[in-house]
Amino acid sequence: MDITKIIVPKKSIGGICIGENIEKIEARISGRYKSHKEVNSLTIDDGLIGAYHGTDGIISSISCNRSFTGNYQNKLWAGMTVADVLRHSKEQVAWSGFVQIDKISGIGLSLPEAHDDFESLADYLGLDFVFDELWVYNF
Rank of each mutant, 00 (worst) to 15 (best):
S35N: 14
A83W: 01
M80G: 05
T69A: 09
T81A: 06
A78I: 07
N65H: 04
R66C: 12
N74S: 08
H88R: 12
T69D: 12
S41V: 06
T69V: 02
S67P: 04
I101N: 03
I58C: 03
Y52G: 05
G106T: 11
G57L: 12
S96D: 03
R32Y: 09
S105L: 10
F98I: 02
A27S: 14
Q100T: 06
S105N: 12
S89E: 03
V85T: 03
H53D: 15
H88Y: 05
G70Q: 00
I44E: 09
T43Y: 09
A78E: 15
I104M: 06
C64R: 00
G70P: 06
A78V: 12
S30M: 14
G70N: 02
C64K: 00
S35D: 05
V82M: 06
L76T: 02
R32P: 00
S30L: 09
I101G: 05
L111S: 03
H53W: 12
R87H: 08
V82Q: 04
T69M: 05
R28Y: 01
I59E: 13
T69L: 04
C64Q: 10
N74H: 13
D84Y: 00
I49P: 11
I58Y: 11
A83D: 10
F98T: 01
N65P: 03
V82C: 02
S110E: 15
F68D: 14
I104N: 06
I59C: 09
Q73E: 10
E91Y: 09
V93H: 03
V93R: 06
G31N: 14
N40A: 08
M80N: 03
C64F: 07
R28D: 15
T81M: 01
S35G: 01
I25F: 04
I58L: 05
Q92K: 04
H53N: 15
S41R: 14
A78N: 06
R32L: 13
L48R: 02
G97K: 01
D45E: 15
L42C: 09
V39S: 04
Y72F: 15
L76Q: 01
S105F: 03
C64I: 11
D45Y: 00
L42G: 07
K37N: 07
L111R: 05
R28K: 15
A51M: 13
S63Q: 09
H115N: 10
G79E: 12
R66M: 08
H115W: 03
S30A: 15
T43N: 08
N71D: 15
